[in-house]
């Protein structure tokens, strides 16, 4: 088995912590972007519904 010294363990821990914190940060940002995307989809749907309702109203207006 590969012998690992105490110094090597501490160095690995220091670099591992930095990597882990950056990874968690990126994951949080990715989750947030997912939420924003869902919100954007919802708002786009709402605008589309509104437009369709308006178009229907226009069709129903009697001319003359």
């Amino acid at each position: 088995m590969l012998a690992v010294t105490a110094a090597e363990k501490y160095v690995a821990a220091a670099y591992g912590i930095v990597f882990l914190v950056v990874l968690v940060y990126v994951l949080i940002i990715a989750l947030k972007l997912g939420r924003l995307e869902r919100e954007l989809d919802e708002l786009t749907g709402r605008v589309r519904q509104r437009r369709e309702a308006e178009a229907q109203r226009r069709e129903q207006v009697p001319v003359g």
């Binding site: 950056v22 940002i29 947030k32 924003l36 708002l43 709402r46 605008v47």
Partner: peptide, 23 residues
């Protein structure tokens, strides 16, 4: 890079909030 990604997310968030209020 992380600063600009977070900033873009925050700006997008505030624009979406504005859009929600307008709608």
């Amino acid at each position: 890079t992380l600063f600009h990604v977070e900033l873009a997310g925050k700006r997008l968030d505030s624009r979406l909030r504005e859009l929600r209020e307008l709608l």
